[in-house]
Amino acid sequence: MKRLIVISLFVIALLSVSVYRAKEGAQESEAKIAQLEKEIAAEKEDLRVLKAEEAHLSRPERIGQLASEKLGMGPVRPEQMSGEVAFDTKPVDEVAKEAAQ
């Protein structure tokens, strides 16, 4: 009887320790997940800030001025533009035939 009690107590203690360790492990994992989620949220926030900065830095007012000052660029003039008529519109096989002759 005494042996049974001792074994029971030992099993209970073992189970208790196991449960405690499992719980401890779960809590650690939860904390790790929470930390990772927090980091993801922070990264996402950083990304939003960077996108906002990018949009702010690439606004036409700034880019236009830089393009004009540093590259000497200006608005496109109509003469600089050409429609598809400017290209050879002959069918490919006809062009190939001409090239073969």
Binding site: E30, K38, A41
Partner: peptide, 23 residues
Amino acid sequence: RATTIALGGTHETSVASKTVQIA
């Protein structure tokens, strides 16, 4: 008490749920 804490844990709001709220 040890058993309830071990099985149920505390009822504090996790950091994750706070993060979601801000997002």
